[in-house]
Simulated assay, not measured.
Amino acid sequence: MQVFDGHNDVLSRLWCAGGDPVQRFARDEGHISAPAARAGGFAGGLFALYSPQARRAFDFRGFRGGTMPLSNPMEQNAALQSVMAEVGIARRLQAAGLIRLCTDVAGIEAAMATGDIAAVLHLEGAECIDPELLVLDALHGMGLRSLGPVWSRPTIWGEGVPFGYDRDGDTGPGLTADGRRLIARCAELGIVVDTSHLTMKGFWEIGDMGLPLVATHSNAWDLCPATRNLTAPQLRAIGATGGMAGLNYATVFLSPEGWKTGRARLDDCLRQLEAMIEGAGEDHVGLGSDFDGAPLPEGMASCADLPALIAAMERAGFGAALIEKLCHGNWLAFLRRVWGA
């Protein structure tokens, strides 16, 4: 079973690690690499362009069992430097034959048919974009087809949610006037708008603008009441608007025990999938691993272990048709609806 995934952070991992990204991706390190993808049936997904405050990987260990406030705002030029470097990494990986950059579903399906990794560029936090939105058009020309206006820090576009527990994502204001201009331009360009990391107010504002509601890597709040997760009304709205919710494998968002200890199991992934399907509907749920950006549950050391998750779905009584939808069918159908090709 091939997996097309809603979110990963391999490009920022490679940028933070330094050295030759082609050599790093070609060897077995991190959650996503060429050998692991071949072993696990990882066929591609949305590859995030993310700007860290410093050139090092984000560490969840600082808030296990507690909270983490919003990060400080980031200067546009600093954010643009890391984003452009990560676009460069993606292009080098493509030149080396390790991934295939895709801008439509036909390209994704062609890559999957030949065993290539289909990579769609996604911007996680739009700090790098200027108020005139010129950088947005430039990135679109480079292949950007998905965008989250914020990560968990404030921007000129809106405010993200802090990482916290025992409360929902109604933590602050939503989109600014500039943020609504950004979203409107994304709609004109056919760029998917991702609400993961956005406050609940911002989530509903995007829905009010008539866009399909998408959370590429968020789970069900009822099973794990973390600020990053989706309440039952949010899940229902995702289904009603023809959107998508992607299961995040991060242990801290899977269960209360995962939040407190950083440890979770594949069974927690299955419970989350069942709750997300109950809320959004089986046509509007997929996988959104957060590979290379989050601690993984037991039995999932990298994308090489995706067959273990699929086997767990089978044991839980998920039928073959549903498993195919969750693994890639729903994402491809959604992207075709947004992109029209």
Rank of each mutant, 00 (worst) to 15 (best):
residue 238 I to M: 06
residue 189 L to P: 04
residue 196 S to Y: 10
residue 120 V to E: 05
residue 125 G to Q: 13
residue 218 S to G: 09
residue 241 T to S: 13
residue 194 D to V: 14
residue 202 G to F: 09
residue 220 A to E: 06
residue 264 A to V: 11
residue 64 R to M: 10
residue 154 P to Q: 06
residue 328 H to E: 00
residue 275 A to L: 12
residue 56 R to I: 10
residue 74 M to V: 12
residue 278 E to C: 13
residue 12 S to K: 12
residue 211 L to S: 00
residue 15 W to T: 01
residue 8 N to C: 15
residue 150 V to Y: 09
residue 12 S to L: 14
residue 92 R to Y: 01
residue 259 W to P: 03
residue 237 A to Q: 13
residue 86 E to L: 08
residue 183 I to G: 00
residue 223 L to A: 14
residue 97 G to N: 09
residue 135 V to G: 02
residue 8 N to K: 00
residue 141 G to S: 11
residue 177 A to P: 00
residue 334 F to V: 05
residue 121 L to D: 01
residue 64 R to K: 08
residue 115 G to E: 07
residue 224 C to G: 08
residue 147 L to F: 05
residue 20 D to I: 01
residue 209 M to T: 01
residue 149 P to M: 05
residue 239 G to K: 08
residue 56 R to A: 15
residue 245 A to R: 02
residue 84 M to A: 15
residue 162 P to G: 03
residue 108 I to V: 12
residue 132 E to Q: 12
residue 51 S to L: 07
residue 327 C to P: 01
residue 59 D to I: 06
residue 103 T to D: 03
residue 159 E to S: 10
residue 67 T to P: 00
residue 127 E to K: 03
residue 274 E to M: 07
residue 308 A to R: 12
residue 8 N to M: 06
residue 176 T to E: 12
residue 181 R to W: 06
residue 86 E to T: 10
residue 13 R to L: 15
residue 337 R to S: 15
residue 151 W to H: 04
residue 253 F to E: 06
residue 92 R to V: 04
residue 68 M to T: 00
residue 152 S to Q: 11
residue 228 R to A: 15
residue 136 L to F: 12
residue 139 L to K: 09
residue 246 G to L: 06
residue 48 A to W: 05
residue 101 L to G: 05
residue 26 A to P: 01
residue 341 A to K: 07
residue 275 A to Y: 07
residue 71 S to L: 15
residue 28 D to H: 05
residue 253 F to L: 14
residue 316 A to Q: 07
residue 77 N to H: 06
residue 324 E to W: 00
residue 118 A to F: 09
residue 240 A to C: 05
residue 340 G to R: 07
residue 268 D to I: 02
residue 290 D to A: 13
residue 240 A to Y: 03
residue 294 A to R: 01
residue 134 L to F: 02
residue 16 C to D: 01
residue 226 A to E: 10
residue 220 A to M: 13
residue 227 T to E: 11
residue 42 F to L: 05
residue 300 M to V: 15
residue 341 A to Y: 04
residue 188 E to A: 13
residue 164 G to A: 15
residue 252 V to Q: 01
residue 260 K to Y: 02
residue 41 G to V: 11
residue 155 T to Q: 09
residue 240 A to R: 10
residue 50 Y to M: 13
residue 278 E to F: 05
residue 56 R to C: 15
residue 184 A to E: 11
residue 58 F to V: 09
residue 325 K to W: 04
residue 234 Q to S: 13
residue 62 G to I: 03
residue 116 D to C: 09
residue 219 N to F: 04
residue 288 G to T: 09
residue 79 A to H: 10
residue 127 E to D: 15
residue 205 E to T: 12
residue 324 E to Q: 08
residue 165 Y to V: 15
residue 329 G to N: 02
residue 234 Q to N: 12
residue 114 T to I: 07
residue 37 A to I: 01
residue 277 I to H: 05
residue 272 Q to K: 10
residue 189 L to H: 05
residue 149 P to A: 11
residue 143 G to A: 07
residue 330 N to R: 14
residue 179 G to F: 00
residue 31 H to N: 03
residue 322 L to F: 07
residue 164 G to R: 13
residue 84 M to G: 06
residue 181 R to F: 06
residue 28 D to G: 04
residue 45 G to P: 14
residue 212 P to W: 04
residue 86 E to I: 06
residue 145 R to Q: 01
residue 118 A to W: 10
residue 311 A to C: 13
residue 18 G to H: 00
residue 85 A to E: 14
residue 196 S to L: 14
residue 264 A to L: 06
